[in-house]
């Protein structure tokens, strides 16, 4: 073992690790992601038919999708969709719901404050931090850039 330094060993191990099944993973991600988006479009069209305004339609669609993601996580199905779909299940807003419910239900035995409520955002928290934080910066930058004109 003395003959191999760390760099050489890491390269060597890299070659021994089986590669992911790229084509299959990409195909499944495409199909699962596509289906979830189509489901979103169906909800959208349904809400539009009821004459809701654009803002309410957008909010309503997210609410229904998030409920669906949370529900499928609770009954133990979303992890199976995720195993097949990979990013196709993680990136749609239903995956965001999955990332909230799964740690929350897992840590129920640690109590309702430090368990469920605190853990809910262990994965989704960073998403909100970067999303909301950067959106405020975008708003302020917009003001600075347009005032300059």
């Amino acid at each position: 073992m003395d003959k191999m330094n760390k760099k050489e060993y890491q390269k060597y191990v890299e070659r021994k690790v089986p590669k992911p099944t790229y084509f299959k993973n990409i195909l499944y991600a495409f199909v699962v992601g596509g289906i979830i988006c189509v489901f979103g479009q169906i909800i959208r069209n349904f809400l539009l038919k009821y004459g809701l305004d654009e803002k309410s339609v957008a909010a309503g669609t997210s609410i229904v999708l998030i409920f669906t993601g949370a529900f499928l996580t609770g009954i133990g199905i979303y992890d199976k969709i995720g195993k097949i779909g990979g990013a196709g299940a993680a990136i749609p807003i239903t995956g965001f719901a999955n990332s909230i419910v799964s740690p929350a239900m897992e840590f129920k035995r640690e109590g309702f404050i430090f368990g469920v409520a605190a853990r809910m955002f262990s994965i989704a928290g960073p998403v909100l931090v970067y999303g909301v934080g950067s959106s405020v910066i975008v708003g302020i930058l917009y003001l600075i850039l347009t005032k300059g004109r």
Partner: peptide, 19 residues
């Protein structure tokens, strides 16, 4: 709407179901 839904539904589902 989405954030509030995530918090409410997330909490309810977590309380009623087990991993």
């Amino acid at each position: 709407g989405g954030v509030a839904a995530a918090i409410l539904f997330g909490y309810i589902m977590a309380v009623v179901s087990d991993p």
